[in-house]
Write a protein that binds this DNA or RNA. Structure first.
Length: 217
DNA sequence: TGCCAGGCCGGGT
DNA sequence: ACCCGGCATGGC
């Protein structure tokens, strides 16, 4: 079987098993972008607490987040961990968003995303995964998001090597999938779901795994 | 109880 | 160009 067909089969099996996941969990592009920063190396349940704190204070608006001082922001995002550094990173991002794009997601995502990606990576605190999450989930641009789950699951099944870099893994998907926003969106969501529930780092339950067919290829 | 979670940076090799 | 310690809370 070609890699292309294997990937599609994996995707279809996951989708059939979990059903549509409707990512990203967030109401507006701005909330999604904020969430992408807060969720760095952090479980989503903790991210929700931080987001809810911001919502309560009506801070999920670019100019309000722009104005709040960093110490106060840090207290609000505290439940997500790394709260000091995350407050700084949120500030760095919001500065770009307000100063360069007037706090408008429409303006920010007006291009194809390639220039924007470079700008995002220049923000201290935004790396490749966060940038791609912002582009894909807030901006609907076809950038495949690679995360720890992707690496774990696909290297376990020998489809990529354990020591591949972010860009090598991303290339693997780019070269074997159509550049389709909906597919990229749902595929990444399915990978995360599999990594959280079945293909965990401690006790992978391979008997239940919807892509268990890979073990007998 | 200790380990892990939807990374990234900065300093040292 | 890699490698590694630091950042920190909440859930299991």
């Amino acid at each position: 079987m070609q890699k292309r067909d294997i990937l599609l089969k994996i995707y279809n099996s996951l989708y059939n098993y979990f059903g549509p996941l409707n990512w990203w969990p967030g109401d507006t592009p701005f909330e999604i972008m904020v969430g992408a920063i807060i969720t760095q190396n952090t479980s989503w349940s903790n991210v929700e607490k931080a987001i809810n704190n911001l919502k309560k204070e009506n801070l999920l608006e670019p100019r309000k987040l722009y104005r709040i001082n960093q110490e106060e922001l840090a207290q609000l995002v505290k439940p997500s961990g790394y709260y000091n550094i995350k407050a700084q990173r949120l500030k760095n991002f919001v500065n770009l968003f307000v100063n360069d794009f007037e706090g408008s997601a429409e303006k920010m995502f007006s291009g194809d995303g390639r220039e924007l990606r470079k700008k995002l990576l220049n923000v201290n605190g935004i790396g490749p995964e966060t940038a791609d999450s912002i582009l894909l989930y807030a901006g609907k641009k076809p950038f495949f998001v690679v995360d720890a789950y992707t690496k774990r699951i696909f290297s376990r099944h020998k489809l990529i090597s354990k020591d591949s870099t972010y860009y090598q893994i991303q290339e693997f998907f780019n070269q074997n999938l159509d550049r389709d926003v909906e597919l990229f969106n749902e595929f990444h969501a399915q990978i995360v779901m599999l990594g959280k529930t079945i293909c965990t780092s401690k006790n992978p339950d391979c008997a239940k795994c919807p892509i268990g067919f890979l073990n007998s290829e």
